[in-house]
Write a protein that binds this DNA or RNA. Sequence first.
DNA 1: AAATATATACGAAATGGTTCGTAGTTGCAA
DNA 2: TTGCAACTACGAACCATTTCGTATATATTT
Lengths: 133, 133
Amino acid sequence: MTPTESELAILQVLWIQGPTTVRAVNEALNTLAAQSDPPDRAIGYTTTLKLLQLMAEKGLVTRDESQRSHIYTAAAKQEKTQRSLLGRFVANTFGGSRSELVLRALGDGQATPEELAEIKDLITRLENDRTHG
Amino acid sequence: MTPTESELAILQVLWIQGPTTVRAVNEALNTLAAQSDPPDRAIGYTTTLKLLQLMAEKGLVTRDESQRSHIYTAAAKQEKTQRSLLGRFVANTFGGSRSELVLRALGDGQATPEELAEIKDLITRLENDRTHG
DNA sequence: AAATATATACGAAATGGTTCGTAGTTGCAA
DNA sequence: TTGCAACTACGAACCATTTCGTATATATTT
């Protein structure tokens, strides 16, 4: 089950903060909304609540109802969700070509020297894995 | 103006085929739908027509009405659209970190040796640009 | 010339996602 | 113990997107 854009925003909060109440998720979202440029409009508390309820039904989050304030936790690891969304995005936007995506991501002069070095190292490791593993 | 998922599927056809009639777009979409696994349901002709009409209103495509069968053309280059969608995707899914995206894209063992070599070359060129340019 | 095929236009229903108001409940403070 | 604050549940409105039926016009075939 893959999250929508709003659901993903909530998952980002849960991945960073760990198990979290509705109120804390809502406040985190609105802090981010206020910081973005131009600032996004604040989201009502019950909107966040409803989304979390729907996400629980879909299995995107689990919840602990033992306290009056329910505690929500992301059901899937961030990496797994990123992989899944990435696959879909690459299929839709780059005809399935991961390397096209990477070329586009690196090819606009935004990457720092550190990032480039890191990626080059990764590639070297991948090549060695392929050769020796 | 950024395309929706269905609109993007149509743009992919237009980028590959160049200026195209509604019917040809519809047939291309349905060929792809039939090939995908599991196969997607076929899309009606008037659905494709309507989408193209809306896309023309939004400025995503231009159309030549000089013949009875209108001819549609993608308004933006594929690369520009990919950049724009990529920016949004990186922001939503990877907290804005392009290198996180790249690490994830390369780190699942799907990339071929040729792709890896190509990307390493690209990085080397980018590093040289930074040093000497 | 009539029938058939193919085209555009467009209203409207169906779908999916987001937003919030309101009702009802529980805890806490005055 | 009364009242206020914070919580969950949930229906319903709203919005964007997708889908298609039907009306109408134009070309083509018989």
